[in-house]
Nucleic acid binder design. Sequence first.
DNA 1: GACAATTTATACCGATCGGTATAGACTCAG
DNA 2: CTGAGTCTATACCGATCGGTATAAATTGTC
Lengths: 188, 188
Amino acid sequence: MDNRQELLDQALALFSQRGYDAVGVREVVEAVGVTKPTLYHYFDSKRGLLHALLRREGGAMLEQILRAAAYQGDLVLTLEKIVQAYFQLAKTNTNFYRMQLAMVFAPPESEANQAVRPFSNEQQEILEGVFTQAAEDHGNLRGRHRRYAAGFLGQINVMIGLYLNDSLELTDEVVYLTVHQFMHGIFS
Amino acid sequence: MDNRQELLDQALALFSQRGYDAVGVREVVEAVGVTKPTLYHYFDSKRGLLHALLRREGGAMLEQILRAAAYQGDLVLTLEKIVQAYFQLAKTNTNFYRMQLAMVFAPPESEANQAVRPFSNEQQEILEGVFTQAAEDHGNLRGRHRRYAAGFLGQINVMIGLYLNDSLELTDEVVYLTVHQFMHGIFS
DNA sequence: GACAATTTATACCGATCGGTATAGACTCAG
DNA sequence: CTGAGTCTATACCGATCGGTATAAATTGTC
């Protein structure tokens, strides 16, 4: 039971650093200090280990996003809360954020991409929901939920990408700038 | 001579579809119909094959971007030309664009990411150059080249990402929308 | 047609891959 | 104290991994 968590922890550390394909199960179990049958007792395959990891970390992440994405009539405020939540997640769970991002952009027929797709879709739907609700107040948003949700998440990930490269600190000012730029562009 | 190109072609197809790590050299040579020593005659390792691929395809891509990024006094026009060039590249060389994108987001210690970094940096520098030059005409851009270049490329890649998922066609209207949104936000 | 250089295939290397059959230790209910 | 279920280790599986020693074709040159 504790070994199970340890295996997930070490798998996360290794996968996020060098990639799912490049890391063997041997490496994972050695990092924990157990043997392969232990891993295969808890997870029925390497793929199963990845899925369990996505359930544990991705589930927690979606909860946070969902909480932040409750639209209450003010689009800017809602978007700021969402950005704040994402930044917080990237800061407190850097390894998972990095891994998840790599998986989203992984080749379409790779195990990694296929595993992350449901998680990725849930994020997209949550954000689309925000823009759909906001469209009731702002007519000119209508019919563009999909592109706006993708574009907004893209901007968030650009900032987090800079953070992951040690090129940017995710301050409150960056939260404001991200939303402001999304809403009003680079001028003004 | 011809086999060399064939090997690069098939490697590109396979890497873009399933990822560098997941594809063995055996698969590549079988796809071409040759044997391993042939591959190792032209490239001294699997890593060398990847580097040669990046030189061939990435070099051509950078040429196109550089050509489109010549700033001539009109920022909007220049950005539109850049977006157009990127969309064209994504459409005519979908496999390489997909592979390159996956490598950019691959884990930092993976071979794929380390190989793509110089190429990625050149793109970033080209775009930064545009914003640096534009800052002479638009003072309020000054000191933000890096973020703007990254953000702009991020928006481009969001659109291309939708295209790669069959969710969006890269029309001239999308070129306009991408630049317009970057400059003025989602309103107006 | 001989010769050198380039290009290719046969056959093999040790290491690692993901995964498992078997059995021993441990926990805990009865 | 027993027996069932949970958890873990030893030892192994066939397959594939990236890479190579050797030598046979193939090519172009004189």
